[in-house]
Design a protein around this nucleic acid. Structure first.
Lengths: 125, 125
DNA sequence: CTTACATATAAATATTATTTTATATTAAAC
DNA sequence: GTTTAATATAAAATAATATTTATATGTAAG
């Protein structure tokens, strides 16, 4: 029962749903999410670890950066995530995505390597 | 976003999952649930109201009694409930169902009106 | 109309989760 | 190797939830 409880607990907090919604379009590193949510970094790290613990996201380490993305592990989680993300309209996180866009654009100018998805590559190589 | 949060919050607590699992086989009145969970009545009422608030269960008043049952309102909730209940094995709530069985049997002897589902009718009419 | 029963609600308390602040870790840049 | 940047973790403060205890409400029975 603990496993399913962890999944629902992870999904029962607004910040975490906003993070998931942001990750819908691809992976982001912690600093991207911090910028998008306009909040402080330890808070984001806390929620990311909750989501990861529940098996909803995964991380990929690359140098100093840690990139998080949706982890479509088993069918149940995949289905849950799909239906959840579908039920959160883009307008709900409009401010988040605006801030993210601005942040990524700036990053892009400093290190103009563009990846798929019109997203900047997080970290210069 | 608040609606979906309420649904997940409702599903992120063990007592409430146990109640939902008990309701899987049909409606129960509050005192049945109290007996099954071997706990106190205000606690059960509290959790029932949370579940009802989230639209996961509904109530039916009959005299002094209030019967609760799963509310398969919209597709999302229905699907959620289905997959949740499926993922909670009967063994998980074995003690609960044992206590429920004993309690219903006793009730049955006092007022031997048997309803569908081999469950006693909660209250004499 | 008084009593007893089923449930709900309120208030007080306890528990758990989140947020903040401060600090540690790790890796790249200098 | 020292500094800087990105992230994580620990400790403390705060906020949110759940539990308990006490009481209220409504309904049927006597």
């Amino acid at each position: 029962m603990q496993e399913i409880l962890n999944i629902f607990k992870a999904l029962s907090e607004e910040t975490r749903l906003r993070i998931l919604k942001l990750l819908e379009n691809g992976e982001l590193c912690v600093c991207d999410i911090v910028a998008a949510l306009d909040t402080i970094q330890p808070k984001v790290s806390f929620h990311l670890s909750t989501l990861k613990e529940a098996g909803l996201i995964k991380d990929r380490k690359q140098g100093k950066w840690v990139h998080y993305s949706i982890h479509d592990s088993d069918i149940f989680r995949r289905f849950l995530l799909l239906s959840v993300l579908e039920r959160i309209s883009p307008e709900t996180i409009l401010e988040d995505s605006n801030r993210l866009r601005v942040f990524l654009k700036e990053k892009n100018q400093k290190s103009p390597i563009v990846a798929i998805d019109n997203r900047a590559v997080c970290c210069p190589r």
